[in-house]
């Protein structure tokens, strides 16, 4: 391998592009599936959190409601309160211990989905809370049930408003799936490490890696801004920060 920086980069691209590309593909797969499943699970968690108190509530219904709310809170607290890298190890090796070996890629998808669900649940909950309560009252005054009101009146508005934040979660996932190298998921970071181990030329290898990450997040940002403009919602400004820091669009409730 040549000694100079540019020559080194050129050499690596020439000989290792398939490995970089495969890593990038896995990273995108993890980020996309993680965001989609995270969205579905996050909807469920937000729903559990927001089950309303009915006026003629029986004792059993009350216990069920509080348990659901407690579970949702605890789940969100745990997954936002621990690093995804640690979650990956616990889930991958924990499940392996209980049920035997399983593919690291599958484990990676599970980890990202479970982690993203916690963040998206909070985004959706904030989105629902941000809808004027007059919407709820108008729907209920017309005889719609709570479920119909949520599905047909509140959620369509709330989801539209939080699409930029969901897009942010995808971009965050593109970057944060790099931690899955600890369970040997062959995403971009893991493959880059492998290549760099061959030559001990970390700088050149990770220069390429960072450019690839950057291109993807840049494209995703541009795409999402386009989507937001079409939907007529406020636009994302730039590439967001890491998921380990709660995003400013999350409206925290005082607990």
């Amino acid at each position: 391998m040549p000694v100079g920086f540019l020559e080194g980069v050129g050499y690596l691209l020439e000989h290792y592009w398939p490995l970089f590309l495969r890593g990038l593909g896995t990273t995108l797969l993890l980020a996309a599936l993680g965001t989609i499943f995270g969205f579905i699970l996050g909807m469920g968690l937000a729903t559990l959190h927001l089950i309303p108190k009915s006026p003629q509530e029986t004792r059993l219904q009350q216990v069920g409601r509080l348990l659901a709310k407690g579970f949702s809170r605890l789940y969100i607290q745990i997954f936002r309160g621990t690093p995804m890298m640690v979650q990956a190890i616990i889930i991958y090796y924990g499940a392996m211990r209980l049920w035997g070996s399983w593919p690291a890629l599958l484990a990676g998808i599970v980890v990202v989905s479970l982690n993203t669900a916690a963040y998206i649940a909070e985004i959706i909950r904030a989105g629902i809370n941000a809808i004027d309560k007059g919407q709820h009252e108008a729907a209920r005054s017309l005889g719609l049930t709570y479920g119909q009101t949520m599905r047909r009146i509140i959620l369509p508005q709330a989801i539209k408003n939080v699409i930029p934040s969901i897009g942010n979660e995808f971009i965050v996932n593109v970057k944060d799936t790099s931690v899955l190298n600890v369970i040997a998921v062959t995403e971009l970071f893991y493959n880059s490490t492998s290549i760099s181990m061959t030559f001990y030329r970390q700088f050149e290898v990770f220069f390429i890696t960072s450019v690839l990450y950057f291109i993807i997040t840049l494209l995703a940002t541009a795409f999402l801004n386009g989507v937001d403009r079409r939907l007529g919602v406020r636009s994302v400004v730039g590439i967001p920060t890491s998921a380990t820091v709660p995003f400013p669009t999350h409206r925290e409730d005082p607990q």
């Binding site: 729907a139 005889g143 719609l144 047909r152």
Partner: peptide
């Protein structure tokens, strides 16, 4: 019992006609 609010509370994601049909269909 129909109710009309001070702040209208029309459903902004539905057009005028759908505002007037959704509860007929659902309820």
């Amino acid at each position: 019992i129909g109710m009309v609010f001070q702040s209208f509370n029309l459903f902004p994601h539905l057009d005028v006609l759908a505002n007037c049909t959704i509860a007929q269909q659902l309820a």
